[in-house]
Lab assay of single mutants.
Amino acid sequence: MQRVNMIMAESPGLITICLLGYLLSAECTVFLDHENANKILNRPKRYNSGKLEEFVQGNLERECMEEKCSFEEAREVFENTERTTEFWKQYVDGDQCESNPCLNGGSCKDDINSYECWCPFGFEGKNCELDVTCNIKNGRCEQFCKNSADNKVVCSCTEGYRLAENQKSCEPAVPFPCGRVSVSQTSKLTRAETVFPDVDYVNSTEAETILDNITQSTQSFNDFTRVVGGEDAKPGQFPWQVVLNGKVDAFCGGSIVNEKWIVTAAHCVETGVKITVVAGEHNIEETEHTEQKRNVIRIIPHHNYNAAINKYNHDIALLELDEPLVLNSYVTPICIADKEYTNIFLKFGSGYVSGWGRVFHKGRSALVLQYLRVPLVDRATCLRSTKFTIYNNMFCAGFHEGGRDSCQGDSGGPHVTEVEGTSFLTGIISWGEECAMKGKYGIYTKVSRYVNWIKEKTKLT
């Protein structure tokens, strides 16, 4: 034993070699072989497995989906700052455009905790909710729209109204504003409101030439003092309507412009014939205590009207009353817009006519005020429907199939267009061939041609 100890002390290297040989010859039971080890760690190889990531292109799944990435790591994937920024906006807080917040056709661009709407022409605001041009839906104005110097929408209202708090709607500024039905039992019968379409306001006024200088022999019209197929109006439903009495009662109609003036057809009036105007009328054979009678003290036909040349060209006249009318729910003026808007309103496509005229061709006159909704007829169809001249200051309205029309005794009465609950004068009943005849239409004086003249002559002093 002493000898062994001496050998170990003198030859430590020998001992180490012996131990190493023993270990190498022993069977290893701690580690699995290569094949079995792979069965336990069965993990798919990654895209760049075996390579240094710093030297390969980034992978979106590896960089940002398996674990949260930084902007720089995302930049490695896209290799483009702009594309990385677009991805980053949604990656950080989701897609803010998912709810489609942009209105009126706006395009949404996502941002971090926010979004941006790219608005089409005519709109602005956070969600493109603000109209900035009158060309689109009248700028959301209830009545009139004008573009300011910086191309912003400025709404306005006709006389007797003021802008509401929203700067879009119009509200009454006087007790009985024009064009409004205020009798409670008839307010439910107000005709369907007309909503502004998209309009090209630059070209809204037709490029028409008034044929002022045409000389033409007097034409022989049949029954051209021209509501057939209409309905009984309720008291106060058309408070701007008046009836004219002269040699015979209810020979023509008219509309209240203001307390002192009536507008009617020029062919209705004769110099030297006494005319009485009755406002607030409903049943011409009954006294309903809503009527107001006034005498006409002055007749002003349009300066281009000449019955000797043509009885229905420039067929418009103004009547001055001896005493002002007292405005109330049964006696209310009709609204008159400017030339541009009167023309736009007419193009809405349908209007209402009213009167006490004959209820059928050569038949009896109506006792109760009649009204009828009539569609506008395109000019080409209008011209083809008659052998008589249709001037540019006239328009056609009615039904091709016949059966409904204005008729004798309705002449001078109103053709009105309702705009968001307020009625505007767009025409004056003038003439036609018979009444409600198939293929024939009622012919009306186009008020847009005469609004400046009306307003100039009827100013209240």
Rank of each mutant, 00 (worst) to 15 (best):
E401I: 09
I316P: 01
E285Q: 12
E72R: 04
E285T: 09
K274C: 04
Q216F: 08
C435Y: 03
I214G: 07
E124G: 11
P375Q: 12
S220L: 13
V154D: 09
F395L: 01
N38T: 15
K455D: 04
D410G: 07
M65K: 08
L211I: 15
L425D: 00
E73P: 02
Q167G: 07
G412M: 15
N100E: 12
E73W: 00
V248H: 13
N100K: 11
G236Y: 05
E159V: 08
V447I: 11
V227R: 10
T29N: 13
E231T: 11
E270F: 08
T422P: 00
L60Q: 03
H282Q: 09
H302P: 03
E142T: 12
E82Q: 10
A279Q: 00
T215M: 05
E320P: 00
Y312K: 06
G357D: 11
K260C: 04
C119W: 02
V56A: 11
G21M: 14
N393Q: 05
R379V: 10
T186E: 14
E208I: 15
N5Y: 09
K311S: 06
P172K: 06
I256C: 01
M394H: 10
S204T: 10
V359L: 11
A337D: 00
L24S: 07
A279R: 00
G413Q: 07
K274A: 09
I316H: 01
E434G: 10
R298M: 04
V30T: 15
G412P: 11
E159Q: 08
G351Q: 03
V296T: 04
L32Q: 15
C382G: 02
L32D: 13
E320T: 01
W453G: 00
S187R: 11
V154K: 12
G439R: 09
D315K: 00
T342M: 03
S448R: 02
K339N: 10
L376T: 07
V199I: 13
G280Q: 02
C170V: 01
K347V: 03
G230F: 15
C396L: 02
V359W: 10
E418C: 06
N313T: 09
I17D: 02
N313C: 05
I15E: 03
C178W: 00
C407G: 04
S107R: 10
W88L: 04
E286Y: 09
V195S: 14
L346I: 06
V368W: 04
I214C: 13
V227N: 11
E171I: 12
K89F: 06
T426R: 00
F251N: 07
M8H: 13
D232E: 15
G439E: 07
N310C: 05
W240Y: 03
H282R: 08
F71K: 05
C28P: 08
N304S: 14
I214E: 14
R298Q: 08
R404I: 14
W431M: 14
I454G: 00
V77F: 06
F123A: 05
E231W: 10
E54F: 01
Y330G: 04
R162S: 12
L23P: 02
K39R: 13
C155V: 00
L369C: 04
E98A: 10
T133P: 10
V248G: 14
E340R: 09
N38S: 14
A37M: 03
N135E: 12
D131R: 12
T16Q: 11
Q219L: 07
E340Q: 11
R46M: 01
Y115T: 05
A26M: 10
V153R: 10
A366R: 09
F78M: 08
N147R: 09
S25P: 11
E72W: 04
S385V: 13
N138P: 06
N80P: 03
L318G: 00
R226L: 07
L460P: 10
Q408P: 09
E281W: 12
R449Y: 15
M394K: 04
C396I: 02
I17S: 03
V228A: 14
E66C: 00
E418V: 09
K109S: 08
Q167L: 14
S385W: 14
A380Q: 10
C435K: 04
T158H: 10
D322T: 04
C108M: 02
G442L: 07
T381R: 11
E171P: 03
C252L: 00
Y444V: 05
G432P: 15
L369N: 10
A317Q: 00
I112Q: 14
G236E: 04
V228R: 12
A192K: 14
R180D: 02
P175Y: 05
G13P: 14
G363R: 07
I429A: 15
F196R: 08
G349E: 04
A337F: 01
N304P: 02
V419F: 13
R43D: 01
N100F: 11
I334Y: 00
K347Y: 07
R358V: 06
I299C: 06
G125N: 03
V368H: 11
G94L: 13
S184V: 15
E129K: 04
E10C: 12
P44Y: 13
C128F: 02
Q96G: 13
G122V: 03
S329D: 15
F399I: 12
S49G: 07
P177S: 05
D232W: 14
F399L: 11
S114N: 10
